[in-house]
Computed example of a mutant assay.
Amino acid sequence: MSDDEPVVHESAYVDDGVVIGRGTKVWHFSHLISGSVIGAECSIGQNVVVGPDVAIGDRCRIQNNVSVYAGVTLEDGVFCGPSCVFTNVYNPRAEVSRKDEFRSTVVRRGATIGANATIVCGNEIGAYAFIGAGAVVNRPVAAHALVVGTPARQIGWMSHDGERLGEDLTCPRSGRRYEEVGGQLREITSSSPEA
């Protein structure tokens, strides 16, 4: 077996019709359900359920005890903390079938979802957003936003590198600089030509 081939633990179950990208690892007791596509170089933790028909991008990390249901899309580089929750029906009842009422949830590139956070269906998590542990997200989250609490509220901004930004909006790890424009964060790029 080459380093590029997916590694699936013997206790994991992969349905027919699942596509797993190169270098992806699927750990103990996980179940990948038919129609799902898992990108390259992902880590699918223990006791994870994916699908059916879920798309997961490259380099995603899904920690233990997470279910990624139909209607959820994870773009590249998404981190899902242990036991975080995605819903797919807004008002579920055990005795009422609502499979035709699934609402889609999109988690954009590089976002982080903390342990035990809940993402209510029908919302978009912006690129590089950071959802604090235990937060309950019931509305869309802007790119780079740091949100915490129940219901989740924004308390700051995060850099591409996952560092909380101070008042100067400069990443302490990379030095990348940002500016806030109309309630959104954007990176300041140098427009001066190289000498």
Rank of each mutant, 00 (worst) to 15 (best):
G81I: 01
V37G: 00
V85R: 13
S83F: 00
Q46T: 03
V48P: 11
D58Q: 08
V37H: 13
R22G: 15
V96C: 07
N65H: 02
P52G: 01
E95V: 05
P52I: 02
G21N: 08
V72Q: 06
G71K: 02
N47Q: 10
S97A: 10
V49H: 10
T87Y: 03
G77S: 05
R61D: 14
H28L: 11
G17S: 08
K25Q: 14
P82S: 06
C42Y: 04
S30M: 08
C42F: 03
A94Y: 13
D58L: 00
L32P: 12
C80H: 04
D58H: 12
V19F: 00
F79A: 01
C84F: 07
G21P: 11
K25Y: 03
V68H: 08
W27M: 13
R61S: 15
E95K: 00
C84D: 07
A55K: 15
C60S: 09
I38C: 11
G39C: 01
P92S: 07
V48Q: 10
H28W: 12
C42R: 05
G39K: 03
Q46A: 05
C60T: 06
S30T: 09
P52D: 04
I44V: 15
I44W: 01
L74E: 09
G77H: 06
N64S: 15
Y90W: 14
N64M: 11
T87I: 06
V54F: 06
N88P: 14
E41P: 04
V78N: 03
V54A: 06
F79P: 04
I44G: 07
H31V: 07
I38E: 13
G81L: 01
C42D: 12
D53R: 14
Y69A: 01
G35T: 09
S43N: 14
G23P: 14
A55V: 12
G21D: 03
G81Y: 10
T24P: 11
G35S: 04
S67Y: 05
R22L: 08
F79V: 06
G51L: 01
F86L: 04
L74D: 10
I38H: 10
L32G: 11
G45R: 05
G21K: 13
V48K: 11
I20H: 05
T73G: 07
V26E: 12
S83P: 02
P92W: 09
G21W: 06
G45C: 08
S43F: 03
A40H: 11
D16W: 00
A55P: 01
A55N: 13
S83C: 12
Y69E: 09
N91I: 08
L32S: 12
T87L: 07
Q46H: 10
G81N: 03
G39T: 02
V18G: 09
G51V: 02
